[in-house]
Amino acid sequence: MKFGVVVFPGSNCDHDCFYVLGEVLQQDVRYVWHQNTELSGFDCLVLPGGFSYGDYLRTGAVARFSPVMKAVERFAAGGGMVIGICNGFQILLEAGLLPGAMMRNVGLKFICRFVDIRVEITSTPWTSGAYEHQVLRIPIAHNEGNYQVPYRTLEEMKLRGQVVFRYCSPEGSVASEYNPNGATESIAGVCNREGNVLGMMPHPERASEAELGSTDGLVIWRSLLTHCGAEVPSGQTRAR
């Protein structure tokens, strides 16, 4: 499977994603510079975390007008798989590829720690390998993860199964005390109607090797590989 990791000025999780996809999961992976508009041949694009354009104006607001984003829109419209992680999620929201918007964390602090998230739906390409309500331990690192979406849109999203992850307790209960940033209904990740575009605040690429404290991120990567018919490396694949 061929992955492209999009690099914006200010991306800083691009190398982590590249490493996990290439070394841990043994996939073909390339960097895609934000000026690039040619995306043919890729099966999945990753919009990584970071501080694209210094987070000026609003997170993701400037990056969404990068030349590559027009191509990403066409790629997604054609059914290509797109995952936005953290700042990548914020960019997808600003681009209108996913519904909603991000606000400052309720506590006004940058939060960098492991959280538990519950898989809300297992019929997406990103969660097909998870069991129902599986709890994944994956770190967050953000200042703007307070997900907001108009009430009516949210109701439609729930009916269509677009709410993919919610912050929860280690046992999987969703309550405000386990919501780190004030996000509406504890939402940590959503997908588009078709399911091929996912945005999530937690960083699965930081939870893909036992040495880093959790391999739960692999649930997402392996689901994706299976969905796309790629060979899934068994067990804990070790990098050199």
Partner: peptide, 8 residues
């Protein structure tokens, strides 16, 4: 288009 996010 850019200066404000009409959603919020």
């Amino acid at each position: 288009k850019l200066l404000a996010n009409p959603i919020i």
